[in-house]
């Protein structure tokens, strides 16, 4: 304990961490009337972090190839110690994240928090919802099961409703006419790098905005 306190003191003396922590965490003032419903956004972010870390672990064994994907996921679930737990946490956190994001949005909409000066919070939030659903959709294909395959097939069919370019969009998303190894590779790259990177950037903006305008003060 003394070692920890001394190490902290050494760092604190040089970088003045304590005033920073007090200002942003321990002595940060929030509106007295703020209810526990104000936690949904933060909890959604927490589930995101859980998925980032469990995702890193799953990536150690996952193989994004149509002949190896299902086997590698089965390997994680049955051969890797605690693999079943890590895989389950990743999938359950994904479901929870969607639910929490929707609850967060419902609260913002109900209290009309999206009004000036917080319009951009809402807009970036809507974009984040879209990214979250895309994360869920691309992740669903990766285990390469029957459910994944047909889920991806039905999901990628949706853009065909767009007039004129619809069919081209479907083929672009599928990387061909049908769901194939190309689709798997594309969804994999979206799921582990492209979408999380874009999402992190938008989350950063989303959080900076809240710090600038402050939390909405209920009546």
């Amino acid at each position: 304990m003394r070692v920890i306190r001394d190490t902290y003191g050494w760092i604190d003396e040089r970088f003045a961490v304590t005033p920073l922590l007090e200002k942003n965490v321990t002595k940060k003032m929030v509106p007295r009337t703020l209810s526990w419903a104000g936690c949904f956004g933060g909890l959604a972010f927490f589930t995101f972090l859980v998925q980032v870390f469990t995702g890193m672990l799953l990536l150690m064994y996952y193989k994004p190839h149509p002949e190896a994907a299902w086997d590698s996921v089965t390997f994680i679930k049955s051969n890797v110690t605690m693999g079943w737990l890590v895989q389950r946490i990743h999938a359950v956190a994904a479901n929870l994240m969607i639910a929490l994001v929707l609850m967060h949005m419902a609260r913002i909409a109900y209290y009309k928090i999206y009004r000036k000066p917080r319009e951009l919070h809402w807009m970036s939030g809507v974009f984040l919802l879209l990214l979250t659903t895309m994360m869920a959709f691309t992740g669903y294909l990766l285990p390469w099961t029957q459910l994944s395959y047909w889920g991806a097939k039905v999901g990628t069919e949706i853009p065909s409703a767009i007039p004129i370019i619809g069919q081209d969009v479907v083929e672009w998303v599928r990387r061909g006419k049908a769901i194939s190894g190309e689709t798997l590779g594309f969804f994999f790259s979206l799921h582990i790098w492209i979408l999380p990177a874009v999402m992190s950037a938008f989350m950063g903006l989303h959080f900076v905005m809240i710090r600038r305008t402050g939390i909405s003060r209920p009546l």
């Binding site: 672990l57 150690m60 064994y61 390997f75 051969n79 890797v80 110690t81 605690m82 693999g83 737990l85 890590v86």
Partner: peptide
């Protein structure tokens, strides 16, 4: 920490 450390352990390949 325990599940993470356990996960990183070398798995038995059949």
């Amino acid at each position: 920490v325990y599940p993470i450390v356990a996960f990183l352990k070398l798995p038995v390949r059949l």
